[in-house]
């Protein structure tokens, strides 16, 4: 099983120019296309990604984070064979990096949300009837269970790298154990141009302390083999 390294970057309130100075030149140009909180998220996400790539032992100075054809972050500038996923919420950015080979890489995605009261568990946009029933059936408080299920689903969505115009109905949470912090998410709609078997993602959830409270992190990995 390939190693997946994760790294965090918390917003310490430094001026945006100071944060931006730590980015690669290409990334600085990209960051300037954004403003306000989105710009800070963009920068923190890239810094977290560089930290995760560094932990993999890749010569990170020659790499920068660009965007792939659907706008998802992707490593550019080298043939090092590294893939990444980035997420941010509130004052925290998180990224994961893993080694990959062209055409043979596993699909992995990460998501994070600040733990807070939410009514997403009852949202018909976010969840199918079966998913809402699955969330309701747990012993965990509905607000927390809904948030955990959403983060799991988002991590799988990022792993598939759907384009932005694909909604949450493209995936479905099938297994959900909020006490054990695990979930299983299946692909209901294939990504355009792909004809292989529908994918299943195993999701590990964890709760961690952020600068302004607790955050939930989900790491989704495509299940391979039988």
């Amino acid at each position: 099983m390939s190693r997946v390294l994760t790294a965090f970057c918390a917003d310490d309130g430094r001026p945006v120019a100071a944060l931006e100075a730590e980015l690669r030149p290409h990334e600085q140009v990209q960051a300037q296309a954004h403003a306000g909180r989105r710009r800070r998220h963009f920068i923190l996400g890239r810094l977290a990604a560089h930290s995760a790539i560094h932990q993999l032992g890749v010569g990170a100075t020659e790499l920068w984070i660009a965007a792939d054809t659907v706008g998802a972050p992707a490593v550019a500038g080298s043939d090092a064979g590294v893939a990444i996923s980035i997420a941010h919420s509130g004052l925290l950015a998180i990224a994961c990096a893993w080694a990959t080979q062209a055409g043979r890489g596993r699909r992995i995605g990460i998501d994070v949300e600040r733990l807070r009261p939410t009514d997403i568990a009852s949202s018909r946009y976010a969840f199918s009837p079966r998913e809402r029933q699955l969330v309701r059936a747990t012993d965990v408080d509905g607000s927390c269970a809904g948030l955990l299920a959403w983060v799991a689903k988002e991590a799988a969505w990022k792993a598939i790298r759907f384009s932005a115009d694909v909604g949450p109905d493209a995936l479905e949470v099938r297994g959900f154990d909020p006490d054990g912090l695990t979930a299983t998410v299946i692909e209901r709609r294939r990504r355009e141009g792909e004809h292989d078997a529908r994918k299943t993602f195993l999701v590990r959830l964890r709760v961690l302390a952020g600068p302004d409270g607790e955050y939930v992190v989900a790491l989704a990995r495509e299940r391979t083999g039988r």
Binding site: R37, S89, G90, R114, S123, Y125
Partner: peptide, 19 residues
């Protein structure tokens, strides 16, 4: 909503409540 730094959960909440 992303221009204001919204995460995916916040966007869904805004849309759900507005509908």
């Amino acid at each position: 909503m992303k221009d204001f730094g919204a995460d995916s959960l916040e966007m869904v909440e805004v849309v759900s409540r507005s509908m």
